[in-house]
Amino acid sequence: MHIHNLSENNSVLNHFLAQIRDVNIQKDTMRFRKNIERIGEIMAFEISKTLEYAPVEITTPLSTKSTSLLKNGMVVCSILRAGLTLHNGLLNFFDAAESGFVSAYRYHPNNDDFFIIQTQYQAVPDLTGKTLILADPMLATGLSLEAVFKNLMANQTPKEIHIAVVIAAPEGIEHLKATLPNNCHLWIADTDERLNEHKYIVPGLGDAGDLAYGNRL
């Protein structure tokens, strides 16, 4: 797996990451959503540098101009519901991309820390021969991304696969390295220290879905 850690170099990305973590600033749900969206835009720009382009000739009002455009079709697929804000940021740059959505959540059958990943809803266009960007803000254990990835790959073969996450734990990174194909690209805005005993990221930021859209029942 090709890992791209955007936090290795200082940029304005640090400001948005600091604000989504700050317990006082993150209470402003509109700012939280906007900051995740901004992070998605930055990630889209960085991802765009690695994609395939084809030469084209553009007609202007005065003449013609040689340039290049993205070569392959693209699908941005997000894990509901936390992935929606990141999805919007990616679409702001990849505005011609198709969209896909998959639900995945932790199910605790014994009401303790043990859980399994449940995937129920899936609405995804044809991925064959296209560039797939799979988006989820938090990479904790990696089990959700693995489960969604396997569902998507069951009958389809994208040309390129990129996974975009905002905050990742080392355990989740290692899990994806062990379970996903070597040609996948993992894009990370920032990495954290570890998972706690409940498998949540430390220091993390809390529940991204709740912070963006309100608490669940």
Rank of each mutant, 00 (worst) to 15 (best):
T119C: 11
R106I: 08
T141L: 00
G209P: 02
Y53F: 15
I163T: 14
S68C: 03
N35S: 15
R106A: 02
N24L: 11
S63G: 15
L90R: 02
A44W: 09
A123I: 02
P137A: 02
A189I: 13
W187H: 15
Y53P: 00
L145P: 00
R194H: 13
E174L: 02
P170M: 09
D95G: 05
D112L: 02
P158Q: 08
H198W: 07
A97L: 00
V124E: 06
L80I: 10
K177S: 04
R216N: 14
V124W: 00
S7Q: 14
T67R: 04
D207V: 10
E37C: 12
R21H: 01
M153R: 13
T59N: 05
F32I: 08
A104W: 00
I42P: 00
G214K: 14
A147Y: 01
D136K: 13
E174R: 10
V148A: 05
L127S: 08
P61W: 04
L91A: 08
G129A: 10
N182Y: 12
T141Y: 01
Q122G: 01
I25N: 07
A178P: 00
G73L: 01
C77I: 10
K150E: 07
I39V: 11
V165P: 01
P61N: 13
L69C: 01
V56S: 01
L84K: 15
E57G: 04
G206M: 06
I188D: 04
S48P: 01
L86N: 11
S11V: 12
F115K: 07
S63T: 15
N196I: 09
G100E: 12
I58G: 06
V102I: 15
A123P: 00
N182R: 10
S68L: 01
S63I: 05
G100W: 10
N88H: 12
A169E: 11
L86R: 06
G100N: 11
V148K: 04
L90T: 09
T64E: 13
P181M: 12
L134Y: 02
S11R: 14
T60G: 06
H15K: 10
I42Y: 15
G100S: 12
T131F: 03
S11N: 11
K177G: 03
H87A: 05
N111H: 03
A135Q: 11
L86V: 08
